[in-house]
Amino acid sequence: MLSPVADALAGRAALLPVPAADERETALLTSTLRAGTEIDDDVAVVVSTSGTTGRPKGAMLTAAALTASAEATHRRLGGAGQWLLALPAHHIAGLQVLVRSLVADTTPVAIDASFDAAQLVSAISSMRPGRRYTSLVAAQLDKALADPAATAALASLDTVLIGGGPMPSGVAERAAAAGIPVVRTYGMSETAGGCVYDGRPLDGVRVRLTDGRIALGGPTLAKGYRNPVSPDPFAEPGWFLTDDLGALDDSGVLTVLGRVDDAISTGGLTVLPRLVEDALSSHPAVADCAVFGLPDPRLGQRVVAAVVVAAPHPAPTLAELRAHVAARLDATAAPRELHIVDALPRRGIGKLDRRALIARLRG
Rank of each mutant, 00 (worst) to 15 (best):
P284W: 08
L221R: 08
E25K: 12
G204W: 05
V171R: 05
A327K: 06
S122R: 15
A323W: 05
A319Q: 13
L361F: 13
Q119D: 14
L257G: 09
V307I: 15
A247Y: 14
V182E: 04
T30L: 03
T73R: 10
A68G: 01
S230F: 13
V137G: 01
A343Y: 08
A152V: 07
T151V: 10
G363C: 07
D249L: 12
V271C: 07
P237L: 13
V286Y: 00
Y225P: 00
T191F: 04
S69I: 00
R336Y: 05
T67V: 15
L241K: 11
L85P: 00
K223P: 00
I340F: 10
P219N: 08
R226P: 00
T26E: 14
T49K: 03
G238K: 12
L2M: 12
D232W: 13
C195G: 08
A305S: 09
G193K: 01
S135V: 14
D243W: 08
G81R: 03
T266C: 10
V99K: 03
E277G: 06
V5Y: 11
A6H: 10
R12H: 14
V103H: 06
P219E: 08
A343M: 07
A150T: 04
G246P: 02
L61T: 02
L318T: 08
L9K: 01
P314K: 14
K351T: 01
P219M: 08
T67G: 01
A89N: 01
A290G: 03
A326K: 06
A263T: 13
D41A: 15
T32V: 14
G36I: 04
P335G: 11
A153C: 10
P316R: 11
G348Q: 08
A155I: 11
T106M: 04
I214A: 08
R200W: 10
A150Q: 05
G246N: 12
T26N: 10
R346Y: 03
S189K: 01
A123F: 11
T26A: 15
E277Q: 14
A333F: 02
P168V: 09
E190L: 07
P284I: 04
Q96D: 07
R184Y: 13
S114H: 14
R76I: 02
T332C: 05
A343L: 04
S3E: 15
R100H: 06
R24W: 10
V309Q: 12
S125P: 00
P148S: 09
A279C: 04
I111T: 04
G267L: 09
R128F: 02
H90G: 00
A146Q: 15
I39T: 10
I340R: 13
R100T: 01
T107H: 09
L202Q: 06
P284C: 05
D249E: 13
H339V: 06
G267D: 11
G179H: 13
G58N: 02
H339I: 07
P17F: 03
T67E: 13
G165V: 04
P297R: 14
P166F: 11
D116S: 13
E190K: 03
G224P: 00
V121W: 07
D262K: 02
A285H: 08
V45G: 00
T220F: 06
D262Q: 13
Q96A: 03
F292M: 10
L84Y: 08
A305Y: 04
A175P: 00
